[in-house]
């Protein structure tokens, strides 16, 4: 019996260590990222970095202004969310409430495949198919715009938004739905006035996670948004080339000398990106917990 106990304890400890490693990795990542990022502020003032409107890392003198990149990321992400949220929720409602089980079974794997496609493939598709068509259709000087990035990111965020929203809607007990129908509500009234409000926490979490995915995406946006580091106008900027934070890091990291100002500036951007995605995930988690659907009894 004692031997058994030791074995149990050993397994428990092992599993604890395994999960502790993930926390440790996150912790180390944080330290490293922030340490390298903060080094920038020995040379450039924090205010200049945060409020700088120009990003000329190789000019003389250097300009490490975050704003063009931050707004680049924000406009592309906002566009992606505006496109993908209505589409994603509509899809989730259709799959969970309206589709026959057979149609739902056919649809779901396709949506999952969408999530499995490598981002470079999306980028390639965007570059070859979407960019020239958008350019011709809207008569632009270049099809590599924030909008192109938004469209591609919207497609990429869809699987997350659909599957989490669908979970949220399906998890509402059927007796709630019956309660509404029994009062003489139509199917649509039931969906719109009972199911969606009841699932709002899950849907909000889905939107936040989709947003997290969009803001962190690198390869696709780098390939289709044109990468010009200017602060985009609003709303006209959506049809102009932009450069996101992620694309900047990916494009420039290979060329900077380690330990240089530019190197630290890229880490400072990474830190900003990290904080943003961290906050987004935190908010998603908070909403999920706070408004989780309570059982009636």
């Amino acid at each position: 019996m004692l031997k058994m106990r030791y074995k149990e304890n050993a397994i428990e400890t092992l599993l604890f260590l395994a999960s502790a490693v993930t926390v440790l990795i996150l912790f180390l990542l944080c330290i490293f990222l922030f340490r390298e990022g903060i080094s920038l502020f020995h040379e450039v003032s924090f205010i200049d970095f945060i409020t700088g409107t120009a990003w000329y890392p190789t000019a003389d003198p250097h300009k490490f202004g975050l704003l063009p990149l931050l707004f680049g990321s924000l406009i592309v992400t906002a566009g992606a969310i505006i496109i993908s949220v209505p589409l994603g929720i509509a899809c989730a409602v259709y799959i969970s409430e309206l589709a026959t089980p057979r149609v739902a079974e056919i649809l779901k794997p396709f949506i999952e495949i969408l999530a499995g496609i490598p981002s470079v493939v999306y980028g390639f598709f965007g570059l070859v198919v979407l960019v020239p068509r958008l350019q011709n259709f809207l008569n632009l000087s270049t099809g590599q715009t924030a909008l192109t990035g938004s469209v591609m990111l919207a497609v990429m965020a869809l699987p997350t938004i659909i599957s989490i929203s669908e979970d949220a809607i399906s998890s509402i007990p059927s007796y709630i739905k019956e309660g509404s129908l029994a009062l003489g509500a139509t199917k649509w009234q039931t969906i719109y006035k009972v199911l969606l409000p009841a699932a709002i926490s899950g849907i909000s979490a889905a939107v936040m996670l989709g947003m997290g995915r969009a803001i962190g995406e690198t390869m696709t946006v780098m390939m289709v948004t044109g990468n010009s580091a200017v602060i985009p106008g609003f709303p006209s900027g959506i049809l102009e080339p932009v450069r996101t934070m992620t694309a900047t890091i990916a494009l420039e990291m290979g060329e900077v000398p380690q330990g240089s100002e530019h190197f630290h500036a890229l880490f400072a951007i990474s830190s900003v990106l990290f904080i943003m995605t961290f906050l987004i995930n935190l908010i998603a988690d908070f909403i999920k917990k706070k408004y989780r659907f309570k059982e009636a009894i």
């Binding site: 009062l183 009841a198 009636a296 009894i297």
Partner: peptide, 22 residues
Amino acid sequence: FQKPNPFPMSIYDNIAYGPRIH
């Protein structure tokens, strides 16, 4: 129903739901 199934909204809105949709 067998199991109480109020909608996840306020007491007032639960009762107002029916009249509103009609």
